[in-house]
């Protein structure tokens, strides 16, 4: 078990290194000059050169990468070209907001999906199953920016129950656990929960239906176990796979909520990325992508470490 832990930790080293290289290069491969955002198009050549030197864009790529990496390791992701503020501060506050939204939305989706999936799998090929499956297909298929707009129209514009934009009253960017802030979380979290709900429902439905037809379930019934006790065994067997899918989903939620964050003007990483791309804010873009990738790597590591705790077959090296 300890060997597995070390091995799995060691795997993250090359992955993390590759992530930094790709993050750095991706932005340099993309078309467009990063200085467009700061220097006017008709700026004199010597001003452009001076700016290039100031941001370090005149150096060869490997040198730029080495310097960037060295600073990144120390927590310095440079300064935003557009705002001049340190990137790390902006990214960290955005990551906090995104994580909050992803965890709450994800938890709602996982809970709903697990419930629906267990029902659908247990009542396989009955009306309950068809209803749950229909909900799950709808969840996966509905574009979530559209659902977000629809929810905004109904609950904000028409009924005026919940705020439509931002993470807190008066454009507050810092989260607090009070009613005023929580009201802002409801609509984006619901919108975000729909896709993982659908995917988890389908995964768990298939898992449960398949497990229920296995010989060991007959054997458990032959021992005289009650329905609930048998189902507890099934759930424990389904857990490792379900958990792996949930981990991946959470990863997507953190990286992939750009549209939802934009629709609800949620000050998270998606919103930040969107801004960075449109302003050609290179350091901000690099920093945000890097932090998102690292969160993704950490999540996968976490799932891989939890799985063998549940499933003894994964403890072998």
């Amino acid at each position: 078990m300890f060997g597995y832990l070390l091995k799995r930790l060691a795997y993250t080293v090359p992955v993390t290194f590759a992530v930094t290289v790709v993050c750095f290069l991706l932005v340099h491969i993309a078309p467009g000059d990063p200085l467009n955002a700061v220097a006017p198009a008709d700026a004199p050549a010597e001003v452009v050169e001076a700016l290039k030197a100031a941001y370090g864009f005149d150096r060869p790529l490997p040198v730029q990468y080495a310097k960037w990496l060295g600073r990144a390791v120390n927590g310095d992701l440079g300064r935003s070209v557009a705002s001049g503020r340190p990137v790390s501060g902006e990214v960290l506050s955005a990551v906090g907001n995104t994580l909050l939204l992803a965890v709450v939305g994800g938890a709602a989706g996982f809970l709903g999906g697990t419930l629906l999936g267990c029902l659908a799998g247990y009542f396989h090929k009955t009306r309950i199953d068809r209803l749950a499956s229909a909900l799950s297909v709808a969840g996966v298929s509905v574009p979530h920016y559209w659902l977000g707009l629809l929810l905004t129209i109904i609950f904000s514009a028409q009924l005026n129950w919940l705020p439509a934009m931002g993470a807190g009253p008066g454009g507050s960017r810092d989260w607090a656990w009070d009613l005023a802030h929580t009201r802002h979380l409801v609509l984006p979290a619901i919108t975000l929960s729909v896709i993982p709900m659908g995917i988890i429902t389908r995964t768990i439905r298939a898992l449960v239906a398949e497990l229920l037809s296995q010989e060991f379930v007959h054997a458990l019934r032959a021992k005289g176990l009650r329905h609930g006790q048998v189902f507890a065994h099934v759930v424990k067997n389904a857990a490792p796979t379900a958990l792996a899918v949930m981990g991946l989903q959470l990863g997507y939620l953190i990286g992939g909520s750009i549209l939802v964050e934009t629709v609800f003007a949620w000050p998270g990483t998606g919103f930040l990325l969107n801004t960075a791309i449109f302003q050609r804010d290179l350091p901000l873009l690099q920093g945000t992508i890097l932090v998102l990738c690292l969160v993704f790597v950490a999540l996968n590591l976490l799932v891989d470490l939890i799985q063998p705790i549940i499933d003894p077959r994964m403890r072998r090296n």
């Binding site: 060991f216 054997a219 065994h233």
Partner: peptide, 25 residues
């Protein structure tokens, strides 16, 4: 029936690798 199974009447299955729950000792 649930009390009858396993108490009055028990079964040995053909393939124990399939008949044991893999995640319990």
């Amino acid at each position: 029936l649930e009390s009858f199974r396993g108490k009055t009447c028990a079964m040995v299955f053909q393939d124990p690798i399939l008949a044991f729950d893999p995640v319990y000792s």
